[in-house]
Design a protein around this nucleic acid. Structure first.
Length: 578
RNA sequence: GGAGGCGUGGUGUAGACGGCCUAACACGCAUGCCUGUCACGCAUGAGAUCGCGGGUUCGAAUCCCGUCGCCUCCGCCA
């Protein structure tokens, strides 16, 4: 028998009954009945059952094989006996009777079972990632990734976007995350940086007249990891010229609609749009989870009427309604603790029972005042209300956290795919660490046209033409219209506190480029890994990345990072100290 | 940088008030039996100095200190 296959496991079905087929793959399970051996052969598509009797050729080989041996089987497809079909398998109505079995590779007993779905220590999984990937759940995610990228690429191709590669060896950018650095051998003492995003390149491509660009691009950020953060990750990076914000949002939304329709067979509703300000007021978050129950209620006005300074004198008073929920004292104490952790001075709760009301503030608020608050929040008998008071955005953020905590705790998070656009992010935000204004998105973000005159006089209030795609409380994409006028860009740099010299040194090439005819342009970057994580129902982006890194940034399979030879260090003019 | 959780045969867990642990259970593995299983079944068996180091104690998987690793969260992530 030559090496090769005629069919994948999942394609062996009733239509092939009586035909000769050749399949190849791994021994998933072997069930030895003495005179009768069943082998589940696994390939990347699934399983197919091989059945073999002592006088069949190949019996001796199948008697010897063990889990994860690699075999190739030529045989005839036949229907399984009456009542013996396995509805769990695509190939479950049939089986293969071999007339030749080739043992291609034996295998050591694997360190964990490929066939069992049990949860295995992730370090071990990563060390033996090639075995982990054999498990159907991860293999499915690789397929999902491939299929999704095909749909995305088709979409962009059809809409006239050019797929253009940008360098992985770039220069360090002053704003943003910590860079991964690569020492230069030819330029002693100089370093490349791995790009945190192709941002500047794609804007230069717009100046070049590419008009529509996209790239499935690796991005690198040397920051601490999380379940949804890896030091290298993949963006679907997009940039367009001569389109206003509305046109960009509509086109990108169409892409996601197409993706979900073709890959998930899900027809998405049009995405609601919400300004950052609205999102913060209604959900205390710039990435609201619309599945997690009703929005926050604003009790600031009604709080003015009560005779208790904690509420009356607070800048903002925000409530979370717990519909038809009577929390225990322990739950309430837990939420109060969470509120304090979040920076609030405390939590006021009101529980409306059939008869009357209990409250943490009953010492200070009479029944009348409690009723006023409860009524303002439309709290019905059987409901409860959590109230956070404070200044600035803090009470909103804390209440937003409590909203999520409650929804998760009480199992009130609805299922579904709740996308939305969040628009009009602030252009600047205050950095405590640096003691200055920094760009909320990045310094090339176009200010809102109505706010341009306030850039110098009241920068904190300036809105931007930046937007995010949010899905179920996760930020999936971030983008903006870009500044294309050199003078406006210079004003922004000035507000950011960059000296003329720094500007010239760090961004001079971009400003230069803008002087040679820059089109109005804007774009967006989708976090592919996060998107796939949600589509796959995974808890971590590691489950949709073939070879991810641990929370400490190591790769246990290759043992990276690693020390290097002294000669390698010398070549790049480095001495290591520790 | 900070907080928390976890670490016990190959895998997943139990044991945690110190002695009942000569460390249990399931799966896996090995050997034998078994002709319709599909998480096959039955029988027998091998396999662990309880992450590592130190301490307390007559005695430590169990208590204390340190350390390493993994995971989660906060900070950080334009």
């Amino acid at each position: 028998m030559k090496i090769g296959r005629t069919h994948y496991a999942q394609d062996i079905n009733e239509t092939l009954i009586g035909q000769e087929v050749q399949v190849a793959g791994w021994v998933h399970r072997r069930r030895d009945h003495g005179g009768l051996i069943f082998v589940d052969l696994r390939d990347r598509t699934g399983l197919v059952q091989i059945v073999c009797q002592p006088d069949d050729s190949g019996f001796a080989t199948l008697d010897r094989v063990r889990a994860e041996y690699v075999i190739q089987v030529a045989g005839r497809v036949r229907a399984r006996p009456e009542g013996m079909a396995n509805p769990e398998l695509a190939s479950g109505a049939v089986e293969i009777v071999p007339h030749e079995v080739l043992l291609l590779s034996s295998a050591k007993t694997p360190p964990f079972s490929v066939a069992e779905a049990e949860e295995v220590d992730e370090l071990l999984r990563l060390k033996y990632r090639y075995l982990d990937l054999r498990r159907p759940s991860l293999m499915r995610n690789l397929w999902l990734r491939d299929k999704s990228l095909m749909v995305v690429r088709e979409f962009f191709h059809e809409h006239g976007f050019l797929d253009i590669e940008t360098p992985a060896l770039a220069r360090s950018t002053p704003e943003g995350a910590r860079d991964f650095l690569v020492p230069s051998r030819l330029q002693p003492g100089h370093f490349y940086a791995l790009p945190q995003s192709p941002q500047i390149f794609k804007q230069l491509l717009m100046v070049a007249g590419v008009d529509r660009y996209y790239q499935v691009a690796k991005a690198f950020r040397d920051e601490d990891l999380r379940a949804d953060r890896q030091p290298e990750f993949t963006q679907i990076d997009v940039e367009m010229s001569f389109m206003d914000q509305d046109a960009i949002l509509s086109l990108m939304e169409a892409m996601l609609h197409r993706l979900f329709a073709e890959v998930m067979d899900i027809s998405l509703d049009p995405f609601p749009r919400m300004t950052w300000h609205q999102a913060m007021k209604a959900y205390g978050s710039d990435k609201p989870d619309l599945r997690a129950g009703p929005p926050l209620v604003n009790l600031t006005d009604v709080a003015r009427t009560v005779d208790w300074p904690v509420l009356r004198d607070a800048e903002h008073v925000v409530g979370v309604v717990l519909p038809q929920y009577q929390p225990t004292r322990k739950e309430l104490d837990g939420w109060a603790e969470a509120a304090r952790q979040g920076g609030a001075s405390g939590l006021v709760w009101i529980v409306r029972e059939a008869g009357g009301m209990r409250s943490s503030a009953s010492k200070w608020l009479g029944d009348q005042a409690l009723a006023t608050l409860a009524n303002a929040a439309h709290v019905e008998p059987g409901d409860a209300l959590l109230v956070v008071a404070g200044n600035g955005w803090l009470p909103y953020e804390v209440a937003g956290q409590l909203r999520l905590l409650f929804a998760r705790h009480a199992g009130r998070v609805q299922t579904g795919w709740r996308f939305l656009w969040v628009t009009e992010f602030p252009l600047f935000e205050w950095s405590e660490e640096e003691g200055r204004l920094v760009s909320a998105h990045h310094p090339f973000t176009m200010p809102h046209p109505d706010d341009i005159e306030k850039i110098e006089s009241d920068p904190a209030s300036v809105r931007s033409q930046a937007y995010d795609v949010v899905l179920n409380g996760t930020e999936l994409a971030s983008g903006s219209l870009r500044i294309y006028q050199p003078d406006l860009q210079a004003r922004i740099f000035q507000v950011l506190g960059l000296s003329a010299e720094e500007i010239q040194n760090k961004f001079g090439f971009l400003l230069d480029a803008f002087q040679y005819g820059a089109p109005p342009h804007g774009g967006i970057a989708f976090g592919l890994d996060r998107l796939l994580m949600l589509m796959a129902g995974a808890d971590s982006i590691r489950d949709v990345i073939a070879f991810p890194k641990t929370a400490r940034g190591t790769d246990p399979l290759m043992n990276a990072p690693s020390p290097v030879d002294e000669s390698q260090l010398q070549a790049v003019h480095l001495t290591v100290k520790w």
